[in-house]
Design a protein around this nucleic acid. Structure first.
Lengths: 236, 236
DNA sequence: GGTTCATGAAATGTATACAATATGCCACCC
DNA sequence: GGGTGGCATATTGTATACATTTCATGAACC
């Protein structure tokens, strides 16, 4: 009897095999939200999305349910879904969560890092340098951190951190130009700590990385518009 | 212009108003899973569930997607969903998460606790004493802890902890008789710390509470069957 | 002017129907 | 005996259709 391994949500999301229209819709809508193409508070009518994606409303419903679970979409019964709003308070909470979760993952992951992982980190650093738009940069940035964390034997925590980082990405994109430069040098230090197999040092660097990211973000977002750019007078 | 507040998933789950068949199905299936009526690994055929719940497959699909997001159900494209399996490693990870998240919530919540909150804690303590079956006890236990945490101005963390505790409940139910007695005295100490508004002390008590719960659970589950009780020869 | 209420239009929730995929079984072969 | 291939069945994924609810508009009223 061959025993098929359970596929986690994360594994499914990464592999494009066996993809259904629902998963495809999820990915597309998620990207539009993280990229800001769909502004916070925008209405997400099922029919409109279905037409835009060339599918029926059912896969769109699946996608909206999934994204609601990820915290990117807000659902209300019998009413249109909308893109989850942004707020300074939410940003603070998200960074607090990252500060709690990412350092322990570092400590667990560093002793298990392989040469291939270090190479992946270097590759993502280059991708960040070569990135042309904020979304590319954020994707490489997440891949850099994921290359570390995924070695930690804590699948749930890794997936959770991944989701949380995805939520902070919506804020990061707005303050992108401020973050990128300071992040670069910090990333280099992190790579060095990973190479030297220093869990405590990497953990401390990550904490500082998170704190500095939060600070720059906060100073920049303090007077920025977090609500919808008044496309259709905002949703609700 | 009246501005409707965003309803979080948690608020929706608690209020029974405006409920749809999908939400109802979600609650029922969730309860069956947490109670163990649906054993880990059991197949969750959409048609069968739909028939049992007296609805069509669409609300069942919604429910399964929701529960997959909560980590109670495992989905694979084009294949039947199944109840998420249990494992010692997963239990360890869940308790590690609780140990990271619950103490900070205590520190934030204690200074904000009201008399009504303390009364709610006492009420849930009585409910635990009066409970007739493990699931009732677990529900009151969660309500006791939620009465504390919900005062923390961290809605995301509160919801996250709630979800994680729900996942550990599946394990707790198995080792229930071992936990209940030791938990009782710890709960009384926690109530006292809350009454005296001692954040640090409550935080420490919660950490100890989590650790002791984990220990008893582990010694009991070490030789217990975590897989499906061979109802229909396992899942897949 | 602002509020309330009714009404039509739009959007969601759900049921049903069909196509695509996986599952289980059995013959078959090594 | 164990593994392989193919076929019938069961199950999921998606489209469409309809019932129900919400939303937007405007009239009536204070």
């Amino acid at each position: 009897m061959k025993c098929i391994q359970y596929a986690t949500q994360r594994e499914l999301a990464l592999s494009n095999t066996n993809t259904t229209a629902g998963h495809d819709a999820t990915r597309q809508i998620r990207r539009r939200i993280v990229s800001g193409e769909l502004a916070p508070g925008s209405r997400l009518g099922q029919s409109r999305l279905a037409q835009e994606l060339g599918v029926s409303r059912i896969p769109v419903r699946d996608a909206l349910l999934q994204l609601a679970g990820e915290g990117l979409v807000v659902l209300r019964p019998n009413a249109s879904a909308s893109v989850a709003p942004l707020s300074i308070g939410d940003l603070e909470e998200l960074y607090e969560l990252r500060d709690l979760l990412e350092p322990p993952l570092c400590e667990l992951a560093v002793p298990r890092l392989t040469a291939a992982d270090l190479a992946a980190m270097e590759r993502e650093l280059r991708r960040m340098d070569d990135s042309l738009d904020p979304v590319d940069w954020l994707e490489a940035n997440n891949a850099f951190h994921a290359a570390i964390y995924e070695r930690a034997p804590r699948p749930r925590m890794v997936e959770l951190v991944d989701r949380i980082r995805q939520l902070t990405d919506r804020y990061s994109r707005i303050a992108h130009q401020f973050n990128e430069e300071s992040a670069r040098s910090e990333h280099l230090l992190m790579l060095e700590a990973a190479r030297n197999a220093e869990p405590a040092r990497l953990s401390a660097l990550v904490r500082a990385h998170i704190a500095s990211g939060y600070e720059t973000m906060l100073t920049f977002l303090a007077d920025a518009e977090l609500e919808a750019p008044r496309a259709a007078d905002g949703p609700r």
